[in-house]
Amino acid sequence: MEFAEGVPCWVDVMLPDVEGGKRFYGELFGWTFDEGAGEGYGNYVQASLGGEPVAALAPKRDGRMPTAWTVYLAAPDAAALAGRIGRAGGQMIMDPMPVGPFGTMGLAADPEGAVFGLWQAGTHQGFGRQREPGSFCWTELYARDKDAVDPFYEGVFGYGGQDVGDLEEDFRIWSPAGATTGPESAIGGRALMGDDFPVEMPPHFLNYFVVTDCDAAVATARRLGGRVRDEPVDTPYGRISVLVDNQGAAFAVLQEPDQA
């Protein structure tokens, strides 16, 4: 697959126990795992589904690092994109750096501090499968100040934005630059963190994975030592639930309407 600038192209999770993560996600999503990229690449372990790459697990090298999933946005020119991020009020946590022949990666934060990655493809393009059971399908930014983040993302990446929420929910979807703006082309969205979110929770991205049965996935996650942050609920886009794995990393699962 080739990914236009700003389109989610990869996800990974930083965990204190990668072997424990392999057991959890292997059973939950049916992933298999390679032997790891070795110490020179941070012992990065790639997850596959049907022989195609879908995600990766990485060991935390520092206990102060968050146990969390990170979404990577495609960057045909990561250095140029990093410059635009800084000029727009964001910051680079890690400047773009080559990762052997695989590509170039960077880590950035938006004006509110929500972290996302940049990926300039080399031999590793990104997802080999997506938007099918066991793979990534969507990312959402949970922000507190839309006036700070909407212009940032739409300016840096050229996203076309469209408000689709109602009076009770302020939600905006983003489509890639040059695409017709709307649900059919949307690659992510922005939600606002209301009073139901703890005040100490920082702005963040939440990544979604497709499952064939949301309730069964929730039951499996519980059995494997995870917990449920938001119980399953039906939406116009499918049945969703927000989960936390057995080590504390949050993610969401989506059962698409035609699978209900």
Rank of each mutant, 00 (worst) to 15 (best):
E2Q: 14
D12I: 03
T67E: 07
D195G: 12
A191C: 15
A177G: 04
Q247K: 10
A75N: 07
V233D: 03
D110L: 02
G36D: 08
V164P: 02
P76V: 09
H124A: 11
E168V: 00
P198Q: 10
A58N: 06
V156M: 05
E200S: 13
F197Q: 08
G182M: 14
R129P: 02
V253G: 05
V218W: 04
E169N: 15
F209V: 13
E52R: 15
E112A: 09
L57I: 00
F116R: 06
W119R: 05
D163L: 08
N207I: 14
G36F: 08
A217H: 11
D215G: 03
A179Y: 13
T181C: 14
L141R: 07
M65P: 00
F102W: 05
P98A: 13
G134I: 09
D163R: 12
P101S: 13
V211G: 02
P76D: 09
G42Q: 05
K146W: 03
P257Q: 08
S185I: 05
F152L: 12
Q91V: 03
V218D: 09
T139P: 00
A109V: 05
G30C: 06
E168P: 00
L81C: 04
V13R: 00
F251D: 03
T104F: 04
G21D: 02
R227A: 14
A143S: 14
G158L: 09
L243A: 11
E184N: 06
M201T: 15
E27W: 00
Y142S: 05
A47G: 11
A148V: 11
M201S: 08
V253S: 06
F33C: 02
R223N: 02
P133T: 09
V13C: 15
D77A: 06
L206Q: 12
Y25N: 01
L57C: 00
V242M: 14
A114F: 05
K60H: 03
M193Q: 13
S48R: 15
V253C: 07
A80Q: 12
D245Q: 01
I85D: 08
A217L: 13
C9I: 05
H124S: 08
M105W: 00
V71L: 11
